[in-house]
């Protein structure tokens, strides 16, 4: 696709700003954010509550559009993309992992994992087969037909990771992926994510306020009052 430009960044933000109108007052959440992330990076986004790190993650994940600036994702200009193209990029390039897992309670683990494939026009038979392979990879093959309510927190997050990975994305965006888990389980989930990053070259972007988790990632991006800086410099 865009490999022949001496490894251009997967994600390139230039002067990104995000403002909300709240009770008639303009509220600036992000201000002049510049950031570039290369394929295979593992980054932590750190900051206090309300610092704007979740908004940054939503913008990175194409769930929210910034008000100003430039954003290139894998060669696509986000500002000129149609909603359908944004949906296609989310579907094919991005895997989301949420703090509260966000599995669909009415679907079995298997159907949850297969869901992203259904939005690509993959037949049900084939998507179930792929979902089963992915569940096997996160060690939950024998729980495939359980519903999320019957799984523990750690198991649910594994299902969510399998769902994020099933489409073979180039980046995983995780919002406090271990926030609802005990420390042992959190350790396991982090090991799993880092292994994927190391072995499959999946770009990993994790929002966290846990310094221990941030320690295990290559890059640490700090968000403070809507301004982004990088610890350790690059």
């Amino acid at each position: 696709m865009t490999e022949h430009f001496a490894q251009p960044p997967l994600i390139a933000l230039q002067g990104i700003g995000k403002r909300y109108q709240l009770a008639g007052q303009a509220l600036s959440i992000l201000d002049d954010v510049c950031l570039s992330i290369t394929r295979g990076d593992s980054c932590g986004i750190l900051g206090a509550s309300g610092s704007g790190k979740s908004t940054l993650l939503n913008i990175l994940g194409l769930l929210d559009l910034p008000n100003s600036g430039q954003y290139q994702f894998a060669g696509h200009d986000i500002f000129s993309a149609t909603p359908d193209e944004l949906a296609a990029i989310r579907n094919q390039q991005i895997g989301f992992v949420f703090q509260s897992f966000n599995l669909l309670p009415r679907l079995s683990a298997l159907d949850n994992v297969a869901l992203p494939l259904s939005y690509r026009g993959v037949s049900r038979h084939e998507s179930v087969a792929q979902a089963l392979r992915m569940l096997d990879q996160v060690g939950l093959a024998e729980r495939a037909h359980h519903h999320p309510a019957d799984l523990s927190g750690g198991q649910r997050q594994r299902v969510a990771i399998a769902r994020a990975l099933v489409g073979n994305p180039s980046v995983i965006l995780a919002d406090e992926p271990t926030g609802n888990l005990d420390s042992n389980t959190a350790q396991d989930i982090m090991d799993l994510l880092l292994t994927l990053n190391r072995e499959q070259q999946v770009t990993l972007i994790i929002v966290t306020h846990d310094a221990q988790i941030a320690e295990r990632l290559q890059r640490k991006i700090l968000v403070r009052n809507g301004v982004v800086s990088e610890a350790g410099g690059l």
């Binding site: 989310r90 992203p116 939005y119």
Partner: peptide, 8 residues
Amino acid sequence: RMALGARQ
């Protein structure tokens, strides 16, 4: 569903 790539 939208995050997973569902279009409108």
